[in-house]
């Protein structure tokens, strides 16, 4: 997918997209490699250009810590928005299940660019709010379904 079609860069002009992309760097993530770990400082936001990223959280399974997939993001989607949200720490771990290419956008460069171009900053912030809001609503629904099952189990 072309970067301009990315969920984060929606409604930006071609010129605005190019300026944003010029701030970042393409990173090739080999299959099975980690993009970031839980608790790492989040100083970069990632646009997935090609491939897939698995977002995982640790879970104790039979006394062993296992990474359990919470979400999967694919090309055109964004991972690592903790880079723009304090306290700037990754709250999930990210790995590539197959060879993946991402564009890494440094937080500090983005912040300076937004300060100089508030319209671009506003559009990207709105797009980011959509991404965050969607995840929140998704997990609210998932949480409620789990709670419903727990209630049914306890009242059976």
């Amino acid at each position: 997918m072309a970067p301009e079609q990315s969920e984060l860069l929606k409604d930006l002009t071609a010129e605005e997209v190019q300026r944003i992309l010029a701030l970042g760097a393409r990173i090739a993530v080999p299959s099975g490699a980690s993009l970031f770990h839980l608790g790492d400082p989040a100083d970069r936001l990632f646009l997935i250009e090609r491939g897939r990223i698995r977002l995982t959280l640790p879970m104790q399974v039979r006394g062993r810590e296992e990474d359990v997939v919470v979400e999967e993001r694919t090309s055109g989607q964004t991972v690592g928005w903790s880079a723009l949200i304090p306290p700037h720490k990754f709250t999930l771990a990210a790995t590539a299940p197959l060879e993946t290419e991402v564009i890494a956008l440094p937080r500090e460069e983005l912040r300076k660019h937004f300060a100089a171009n508030p319209t671009v900053g506003y559009k990207i912030t709105l797009n980011l709010a959509v991404v965050i809001g969607h995840r929140l609503q998704l997990f609210q629904a998932m949480w409620l379904r789990e709670m419903q099952r727990t209630v049914e189990k306890h009242s059976a």
Partner: peptide, 29 residues
């Protein structure tokens, strides 16, 4: 067991996505 958990998460996400597309009590549960 881990594969079952992963499949469960996928199915739950799909169910949650369906709920978000057309929110209703029936879709949620």
């Amino acid at each position: 067991l881990l594969t079952q958990i992963e499949n469960h998460v996928r199915l739950e996400q799909a169910a949650a996505e369906s709920f978000l597309e057309s929110p209703s009590h029936a879709q949620l549960h």
